[in-house]
Design a protein around this nucleic acid. Sequence first.
DNA 1: AAGACGTCTTGACAGGTGTCAAGATTTTCT
DNA 2: AGAAAATCTTGACACCTGTCAAGACGTCTT
Lengths: 223, 223
Amino acid sequence: MTATADKLDRVSRRQVDKFEERRRELASAALLTLSELGYARTSLREIAQNSAFSHGVLHYYFRDKNDLITYCVRQYKAQCAQRYDQVVAESPTADALAAGFADAMIATLREDGHMHRLWYDLRSQALFTSSFRSDVLEIDELLEQMIWRVVSRYAELAAVAEPKSSALTYALFDGVFQHALLRHLAGLDVAPTLHSDVLCVLGTVVPRDTDPAVPEQVPATTT
Amino acid sequence: MTATADKLDRVSRRQVDKFEERRRELASAALLTLSELGYARTSLREIAQNSAFSHGVLHYYFRDKNDLITYCVRQYKAQCAQRYDQVVAESPTADALAAGFADAMIATLREDGHMHRLWYDLRSQALFTSSFRSDVLEIDELLEQMIWRVVSRYAELAAVAEPKSSALTYALFDGVFQHALLRHLAGLDVAPTLHSDVLCVLGTVVPRDTDPAVPEQVPATTT
DNA sequence: AAGACGTCTTGACAGGTGTCAAGATTTTCT
DNA sequence: AGAAAATCTTGACACCTGTCAAGACGTCTT
């Protein structure tokens, strides 16, 4: 009986894989549509139109619209929290890390601005719909850890004690990025401001008072 | 002819006043519904049901749904930017201002959390719908000025030079508040954290290095 | 008092939505 | 190859949406 069991297992495993693969494919199409139209204006038919299938197939792979969107959020989670790790790994000095971090944020703004506005949209939905909250809080935690990896490595390179709480640090950078994203999408050139803002926040979040050569704070254009 | 003109003017003025008054009334009902359901789930019929009128009247006072929501956003704007001015006026010392500011933020979280989640929702919509952007950016500017009044007054009381840019300062506090709001609505008790976070950010945004009596909050624990 | 005007309700419309079931099509297994 | 199962399409359903027009109601002017 083990032979039959193995075969059945192989078969069902393969089917599950294919099933999961198509789920991912459809979720990708859904994420594309959502990031283009926003949560409020995205319908299942529109999602299907951005895929290779017709609208009925969505209910073959997902129970609900809620099920689909929750799956999308989780898929988004898996891909979004690994953006700055390369910068962390490749920066030899604290200053290089700071500059690389600021540049990476600007690149995120330009290249993944649409995905990030979707993230902010979904996080706003979580303020109303409790069913989204746990997933959103999970993603928030991942992003928080991602920022923390940057900041704590920065403190390590600068040979300074670790900074404030991880949650507060994340909230600060998140506020700065969100501010920049809105103005970027409005057509403004926010790259220089965002760059200096990131350096400034980084400088205050982990103060480098142990270095006697640095007299003042990071120079920022004062209005 | 001036008599008739005056009378007509009086009459039309009164009618305009009544017209505007009802618009405000309906916009209030709409704001209530929006803050309860969120932008994506709010319909005109639901708005009317939260008012004393039927759904048809909305198109008597507003051209569009967009027109209504834009009017709502502007009405929200008028009321939201005057919250912390009392704290600014009544705080004699820098420390009192800081504590009052933190307390006021907690009070805002508790009492006006629903309105603020609507604000974040609408600001997210502005990331997708360009027609909302100008109004949202205007409100953002008002809130920025509100925060700036607090922070610059704090610097004045502490006899320290003015801090970083107004825009960056606002982005930081906004990030902190948004972070707290999500967790507050998720059922967590964020009041102590928010309080200490606000003090911490205030302390780093306007550094009080001239005062030798105040110890720094940064612990020297090395991991 | 009577008509004019502002205000509000009702009911309909065209279109869009999520959902589902029946069947066509493709893939897989024996 | 033929049966069985998985997959996909089509079309329908009930409901909801924004919008508008026709008319009812009330208020004010003359």
